[in-house]
Design a protein around this nucleic acid. Structure first.
Lengths: 121, 121
DNA sequence: CTGTATCCGCGGTGATACTG
DNA sequence: CAGTATCACCGCGGATACAG
């Protein structure tokens, strides 16, 4: 032992933040400028209010989103990315890019040659 | 409607592949060259055999891992990344990098200035 | 060595209705 | 407009034992 894996901890930490079905999607929409509850609710297909509320609260607790309540009638709430949330966008973007590539290549299944050693990590 | 969100679908697709507690961690270890069952089992702290088996099978079904069984006694199995699996490494790497940064900055909490508009997406 | 079988708790996820 | 309350399902994740 003794070799406590730093990368593993980092991955776990990240998955704690981004885990679940909705969080990356919410982050994406907020990053695009959608910041009000019902707007998010309408744009995110398949979610219901409770889920949206729960996930928003979770993201808020994690320090990824800020929630601003304006004391108006009718009430207005705006969600914005914190600096921490913004730092997460490259990750979301990497996931998006990968997903787009795959869903596209479903059609044009090209023979992918065996890649050589990737020097990642 | 009609505005079916491509990025959202891409994100969902990616989360289907990488979702759950263990998959990114397994991918990371396999990418580092650990490819035998018990080696993975020993290196991944906190997992049990069934979970490892389940996740490996799931990754195999997703086309992310290849499983090679050598007809030897005792049996030997090796897991390797498929091209699809390799294409996923940048995503895992992005998550790792983010997680490392955050866990480090826990100590040296510098005042982070308000970032200007990020042109992501 | 490399798994599978069985059993189970808990929480993520969800539909619906109600509230300030 | 922006949530919360309630109820329920289901499968992930896990402990332990068994198998080829």
């Amino acid at each position: 032992m003794a070799k406590e894996n730093i990368e593993t901890k980092a991955l776990e930490y990240c998955m704690d933040m981004l885990g679940g079905k909705w969080k990356p999607i919410i982050l994406y929409h907020v990053s695009k400028g959608t910041n009000r509850f019902n707007k998010l609710f309408n744009e995110i297909e398949g979610i219901n209010r409770q889920m949206l509320s729960k996930q928003l609260k979770s993201l808020e607790r994690s320090g990824i989103l800020d929630r601003t309540l304006y004391g108006e009638i009718p009430p207005r709430v705006e969600y914005t990315l914190t600096p921490l949330g913004k730092s997460l966008l490259p990750v979301v973007q990497a996931m998006t890019k990968w997903g787009q590539k795959q869903t596209k290549e479903k059609v044009e299944v090209v023979e992918v040659p065996q890649n050589q050693q990737l020097p990642l990590f």
